[in-house]
């Protein structure tokens, strides 16, 4: 079986698993919606700058909550079963891909909810959509690998934030910058630089994950 079919099968498995236990997915959706609502009630008036920061803060916490279960939701016995069958690279890539899709969904939902309750500050929706897509990829690449490390410890959700936050700060800073351009808070021609740097960081983290995951995975 080639790597790509393997990834495809595993991705299908992730989606099926998620669909069977819908409570996890609906939990995350509810998490995003209620956070947006809390933010709306407590701020009432949301300036474009605040809109931008709030979007990414909500996105950050929702992503951590969504990704943390990647490696802990399946039992140890089933993990053992995967050791026999799958290539670790395929496992990591399929989980990263699945998490990217999940975060894209969350990002869309988050944006829609914020647009609904806090008005529309976007001047360049295309650029904003790009930053959400790049953000989903960046968060997913980083957090999936961190989740694999955190899953090995006794307290994985706390470890996830401790390990994940410092690593994600550079990504988050660039994303806030990029969407500030889309909102019209920042002017200038540095957008391409930001995109290239973000893609560079994503690629670096993905490469590191692919090299290190095989050593991490097998007990």
């Amino acid at each position: 079986m080639s790597l790509w079919t393997e990834i495809w099968f595993l991705l299908g498995k992730e989606v099926k698993l998620e669909w069977r236990q819908r409570h996890a997915l609906s939990g995350i959706v509810l998490y995003v919606l209620s956070t947006v609502f809390i933010v709306f009630i407590s701020f009432q008036q949301i300036s474009p700058q605040l809109w931008n920061v709030l979007f990414w803060i909500i996105m950050l916490f929702a992503s951590i909550n969504a990704v943390v279960k990647s490696f802990v939701q399946e039992s140890g016995n089933r993990q053992l079963y995967y050791y026999q069958l799958a290539n670790p690279v395929a496992i990591l890539l399929s989980k990263t891909l699945y998490n990217t899709l999940l975060l894209l969904l969350l990002g869309g939902l988050n944006a829609a909810a914020l647009l609904l309750v806090a008005g529309n500050p976007l001047e360049d929706p295309g650029l904003f959509a790009l930053s959400v897509v790049m953000g989903s990829i960046g968060f997913s690449v980083t957090f999936t690998f961190i989740a694999a490390i955190a899953a090995k410890t006794s307290n994985s959700s706390t470890m996830m934030t401790i390990l994940g936050f410092p690593v994600i700060i550079p990504v988050l800073l660039i994303l806030v910058n990029l969407s500030a351009h889309a909102i019209g808070l920042l002017q200038g021609s540095l957008i391409e630089d930001d995109i290239v740097m973000l893609a560079g960081i994503d690629l670096l983290l993905l490469g590191l994950g692919l090299v290190l995951f095989p050593m991490l995975w097998r007990e």
Binding site: K152, T153, V167, L205, L208, L212, M215, L216
Partner: peptide
């Protein structure tokens, strides 16, 4: 093992 993996990761970032 886990901290060795993390150490390599930290150095590369």
């Amino acid at each position: 093992r886990i901290s060795a993996v993390y150490n390599i990761f930290a150095y590369s970032t």
